[in-house]
């Protein structure tokens, strides 16, 4: 069902949390109020991810705008049977952030992926305060992974490296990288589904 498109006549009722799927449905009908609420709910959750990937706050704000703009425009294509609103917006945000990083890399042509400070906590050097700030951006669930598993997730999901690049980077067999990724996902799944 499509909701009527009336500015200021939001069908979203104040005072009670509206499911994300309802917000997206209202957005699909052109409801600005629903979009504002969607942004206010999900932007602070997604922003740390984008910032973690692109590094610069201004760039991250740019990417965030693109991500939510795309969400606004493609809300009608959202299918709740194919995933939660959280997965919908997070997957989109991660993809756009990686796109931005890769575009910057192509432009600079000087990319040598450095192990992220947070993914190599034992690495010496770096400003202590900065590292503390970085660490605050790391997802709790991720921090609870065994180091080798966390490392491959960091490199793949946050740095945008492929399995071959990770294997080369870590000087590990491709099969080992594959296994670590699989194990990491299995462990994360346990962590996020535990009560």
């Amino acid at each position: 069902m499509r909701l009527p498109c009336h500015r200021g006549a939001s069908l979203i009722v104040d005072g009670m949390p509206t499911p994300g799927t309802e917000l997206i449905r209202a957005m699909a009908a052109g409801d600005h109020e629903a979009f504002t609420r969607f942004y206010d709910r999900y932007a602070p959750l997604v922003f740390p991810l984008v910032l973690r990937v692109v590094g610069e706050r201004a760039d991250a704000a740019d990417v965030l705008q693109d991500v939510f703009w795309e969400a606004w425009r493609t809300a009608a294509a959202y299918d709740s049977a194919r995933g939660t609103p959280e997965a919908w917006i997070v997957t989109r945000a991660r993809t756009r952030a990686i796109d931005r990083v890769r575009a910057v890399r192509r432009r600079s042509e000087t990319f040598v992926p450095a192990l992220d400070a947070a993914s190599a906590p034992a690495a010496p050097g770096g400003d202590v305060a900065e590292r503390a700030g970085d660490r605050a951006l790391v997802a709790e669930a991720l921090a609870r992974l065994p180091a080798p598993q966390r490392e491959v997730i960091e490199l793949a999901y946050y740095a945008g490296l492929t399995q071959s690049e990770i294997a080369e980077r870590l000087e590990q067999p491709l099969g080992t990288v594959k296994t670590r990724i699989r194990l990491a996902l299995a462990r994360l799944r346990e962590l996020v589904t535990l009560p």
Partner: peptide
């Protein structure tokens, strides 16, 4: 299933408010 897991894992990071300018620009754009 993997995407749901990753999303939920990512969202365990402490929320952080994006710059207010981003929100304003986006709403203006819409």
């Amino acid at each position: 299933d993997a995407e749901e897991t990753l999303a939920r894992a990512v969202l365990t990071a402490p929320p952080q408010a994006p710059p207010a300018a981003a929100r304003e620009a986006l709403m203006r754009r819409v």
